[in-house]
Design a protein around this nucleic acid. Structure first.
Lengths: 226, 226
DNA sequence: AGAAATAAAATTGTATGCAAAAATGGTTTA
DNA sequence: TAAACCATTTTTGCATACAATTTTATTTCT
């Protein structure tokens, strides 16, 4: 895990320290990480190409923000892509991965019961990551994870926000159902369940935004603030 | 079309002046475009994040190259993504786009008859681009075009290489069939035809590589050269 | 002659400086 | 009071310089 500067800056966004719309000041980032502006600029440009931040000539880069329509489209796209990964995984998953998938679901059961939000977020990453790997297609995996990355500032909020009591059990049950289909080799069904899973995530997210519209530290959809 | 430096360097790759495996020398690129190394480096990093070039610490960036397995996976992924775009387009395309699609196919008919390779390449871009737009989903469009970008150094060779007599009529007929399905609103069928179209492109490409294995200026699959 | 070792050249990574543009703040004016 | 104007400060874009590393060329040794 060589923590590149790009990764460090991305982490600021993924960990929620920088929220959609926030500016990335080259000078302060440089100071914060003990380097000069040059490597910071290069890292920011890379994040711009990955779609995590928005780069505007002569103006500070800002964390990419989506309006409602863009969020809907992003989730629709991710649903399709994840569905493809899942159906491929159902046909191609190897024995080691099958074992790991079973273990993951068992752990997830426990996490859900304990209502451990941060563990649940990590579990979510691992579950989907495993399916990406099992799709036996590096580009599918790359596409899925790039897409996931872009909306993380929003989707992670579901797990991250303290005090927000979204249901942790529903995503767990959906993961379990998908895993069952994958393990049974039912490609079509795995894809369908995955699509529904992502669609459900969008609905939860929209509900979350309504519920927390008052709170100030939640990521806002574009046009909501200032 | 504000030709950014990033775009200019990308064009070198897309136009085939830089082939997979070729090094991108910061100094000579800087000289070539009349700027210093700093903006060149930033552009290269961006292209690295887009997956068009490969960046290795302390070593020159090189144009991304794929081995046979990676190419297969890339085309499989692209087939799925383009299929989704096509089926969405079949349901969501508006009247202006329908008109344009018809015109495109008519022009394509002519291009195919005249065996105009460079026009055919442009047509290919426009056809798929139109479907991306008509999917009414910016992220799907972004994903499709990023994926397409990565394999362009290989797929464009089919059209670019002088003297290689690949069939121009087949892709045209496939485009026409897809267009018909889209215009008829047959989402399922449009997606299926698109998947087959991309699969066929891979087969043609593999054939192309076999045929031109001797020629030195064709892009090679990783491991073939040096 | 071929391989290994070594010296020279070329290339990348980063810091720094400066000009140009944009954001900020305060003053004036309607 | 609010808007418009102007000066100040901040921030970005780019060029340049230099150290660290890799690459290339040359020489030496077996």
């Amino acid at each position: 895990m060589p923590h590149t500067l790009r990764q460090k800056i991305a982490d600021l966004v993924l960990r929620g320290e920088l929220k959609p719309g926030d500016r990335l000041d080259e000078h302060s980032l440089a100071e914060q990480f003990g380097v000069s502006r040059t490597p910071v600029r290069e890292a920011i440009r890379q994040l711009g190409a990955s779609g995590l931040v928005e780069i505007r000539p002569r103006r500070s880069a800002v964390v990419r923000s989506f309006d409602q329509a863009e969020l809907n489209e992003a989730f629709e796209a991710m649903g399709e892509i994840e569905a493809i990964c899942a159906s491929r995984a159902a046909v191609r998953m190897n024995d080691a991965e099958r074992l790991r998938l079973r273990a993951l679901i068992a752990t997830s059961e426990d996490i859900s019961a304990r209502t451990d939000r941060s563990a649940a977020l990590e579990m979510d990453f691992e579950f989907h990551g495993l399916l990406h790997d099992a799709s036996r297609n590096w580009m599918l995996k790359a596409v899925a994870e790039e897409t996931r990355l872009k909306i993380t500032p929003y989707s992670a909020a579901l797990y991250t926000m303290e005090g927000y009591n979204a249901d942790l059990d529903r995503p767990h049950r959906q993961h379990a159902a998908i895993a069952a289909a994958v393990l049974a080799g039912e490609a079509e069904r795995a894809g369908m369940l995955m699509r529904e899973h992502i669609a459900q995530a969008l609905i939860s997210l929209q509900k979350f935004f309504e519920d927390t519209a008052a709170q100030s530290d939640a990521p806002k959809v574009k046009g909501n603030t200032r």
